[in-house]
Simulated scan of single mutants.
Amino acid sequence: MSLEKFSAIYQRAAERKGGEQALEALLSQPLSRAKIEAIPEDRWLSAFSMKVFQSGISWRVVRNKWPNFEQAFFQFRIEPLLMLSDEQWEQKAQDPAIIRHLTKVMSIPVNAQMIYQCRQTHGSFSKMVAQWPQENIIDLWVYLKKHGNRLGGNTGPYTLRQMGVDTFLLTGDVEAYLRNIGVIEGGRDTKRALTATNKALMTWQQESGRSLSEISQIIAYSSGDNRV
C-alpha cells in the first residue's frame, strides 16, 4: 500500500470546493493545547452528555432542550452530581423539562466519575486530553469508550472535535477513501484499522504540517458526499 501524496488530496478538494481560498474557509481549526487545558471540566461533561442524547434523536431538539439539562444537572458540575443517589438520578430521568431517557441520563454520573478520576491522576481531565500524543489519538478514543459510558463509536471522537481537540474523524467519506486506498480493511473500529488510520494521517501531517482535524476534513472534501 502506498499513500497518495497529501498535496494531490488537497488539490482535488480545492477543485471540488471552488478553489483553495474557498476550501480554507470551510476548514475548522483545533484549539491550542493551552486552550484545551483551560476548558472547565463541567463543559466536558455537558458536551459528552449532549452527544449521548443526540445519538438517535434530532440534534436540534436536544440543543433546544439543553438549557433545561444545564439547570436540571447543576450546570454539569462534577461534585454535586457525584453526591446524588441512584434514586435521585431516577427521579431526574423523569423530569419532563428534559428528554426522559433513563439509560442516557445514567451515563452522566459514570462520565462524571471518569472526569473526576482523571483529575486525581492527571491534575484535570482537560490536562490529560491536552497532553495526549497525536500519534496515539485513537487510544484517547479507546480510553473514553472504556472508562466512560456510551462514548464509543463516533460519540467520543465527535465530542473531542467539537471541543477543539485535534483529532481526525472516521466519517463515511473519510472511511470510504481510506478503504479505497487500502488503509482500512475489515471492521472500521478494530484496533488494526484505527492504528493504520492514525499512522496514515500522521504521515500526511508530517508532509503537510497541518492538523489532524484539517487533514480529515480535506480528505472528506476531496471525495464522496463531503461528510466532514
Rank of each mutant, 00 (worst) to 15 (best):
M1S: 12
K5Y: 10
F6S: 04
S7N: 07
S7D: 05
Y10D: 00
Q11T: 10
A14V: 04
E15W: 07
K17S: 12
A22W: 02
L23F: 03
L23S: 00
E24F: 13
S28V: 09
S28P: 11
R33P: 14
A34Q: 10
A38M: 04
P40E: 00
E41T: 07
D42I: 06
R43H: 12
R43K: 15
W44D: 06
W44N: 06
A47Q: 01
M50K: 15
K51P: 13
F53W: 05
Q54G: 09
S55R: 07
S55W: 03
G56D: 04
S58N: 11
R60E: 12
V62I: 11
N64Y: 14
W66G: 07
W66L: 06
F69P: 12
E70G: 11
F73S: 05
F73N: 04
E79D: 14
L81K: 01
L82D: 02
D86R: 13
W89L: 08
K92T: 06
P96G: 01
A97E: 09
M106G: 00
N111V: 10
A112L: 11
A112R: 07
A112D: 04
I115N: 05
Y116V: 00
C118Q: 03
Q120T: 05
Q120L: 15
H122I: 02
G123T: 01
K127Q: 12
V129K: 08
V129H: 07
A130E: 01
E135F: 11
I137E: 00
L140P: 09
Y143S: 07
K145E: 13
K146R: 11
N149C: 14
N149S: 15
N149Q: 13
L151K: 03
L151G: 03
G153K: 05
N154I: 06
T159E: 01
L160V: 02
R161C: 06
M163R: 05
V165W: 05
G172V: 06
G172I: 02
G172Y: 00
D173R: 05
D173Y: 06
A176G: 09
A176H: 09
L178M: 13
I181L: 03
G182S: 03
V183C: 10
V183M: 09
E185R: 15
G186W: 05
R188Q: 11
K191R: 13
R192K: 15
A193P: 15
T197L: 10
K199H: 15
L201F: 14
Q206G: 15
L212C: 08
I215E: 01
S216W: 07
S216G: 07
I218T: 05
I219M: 04
A220F: 07
Y221I: 09
S222I: 04
S223W: 09
S223M: 08
D225P: 13
D225E: 14
D225G: 12
R227L: 12
R227T: 10
